[in-house]
Nucleic acid binder design. Sequence first.
DNA 1: GTTGAAAAGTGCTGCGA
DNA 2: TCGCAGCACTTTTCAAC
Lengths: 152, 152
Amino acid sequence: MNYEIDKLDKEILKLLMEDVTRAYTDIAKELNVSGGTIHVRMKKLTEMGVVKGAQLLVNPSAVGFDVCAFIGVYLEKGSEYKDTVTQMQKIPEIVELHYTTGSYSMFVKLVCRDTKHLRQVLNEKIQEIEGVQRTETLISLEESISRQITIE
Amino acid sequence: MNYEIDKLDKEILKLLMEDVTRAYTDIAKELNVSGGTIHVRMKKLTEMGVVKGAQLLVNPSAVGFDVCAFIGVYLEKGSEYKDTVTQMQKIPEIVELHYTTGSYSMFVKLVCRDTKHLRQVLNEKIQEIEGVQRTETLISLEESISRQITIE
DNA sequence: GTTGAAAAGTGCTGCGA
DNA sequence: TCGCAGCACTTTTCAAC
């Protein structure tokens, strides 16, 4: 597993990150190589772990998930971060968990059905986890930007 | 544009959210409908805006983006949120922007190459935007969970 | 709205340079 | 190692139910 990404790899990633549905043959034409080459490169990048797959983008509110929130979690002194993460893994409403610098020990992104659901997840799930001292909630009223990093 | 999603739509979304690379014909078999139906439903869902497309998942650190940070932004009283968002849009390092409750006016997720790059984006870009009073930075040392919501 | 099959295009594998 | 060509498969479309 060696992370040696050349210019062609980056070009391919850049184009596919803009539009995954684009055909390999189409990308091949733009980059002046054969379709097979794109395939080989993508296979290599996937094996290397650079590409982790693809994801369907679904509008959360359209499937009944209207509330997005960030939770700053304070852990008790001496509690094991790893154990807490394992517990958090079991909560499906958690979509992101970061170990952060600053006043919080960890920082969590949640997606819930409504405020009642959010309250339930907070009180009955997150705050019940051993090691969690207290939490601070930021509710997202509007997600104005949501995109991927632009490489190169 | 009417958001009427039936059980079949949800089943399709659920399966595709788990694995986008799966063939329509394969899903059709599992749900006991024809391949054409899956296609028609997905087209409908896309036109309705429920499905926003698909995204290639790339390991940021493999393409040279090692630092992920969250920035809490305090806006000056009376400044226009919309204008500030427009300015933020122009910063490619910003991958998410939320209008939130709590002490911050807005909350931003950034992905940068290194700490030097992060500092540059903060000082030379974000803090230069009109209306931005001050910012608070949380650096993610480790992203322990990163996934999508589980529907149904 | 769903079905089933036919047509067009894509991804994949083996061969050659 | 990289590029090219054929094969298998999928997506897509369309007429009929």
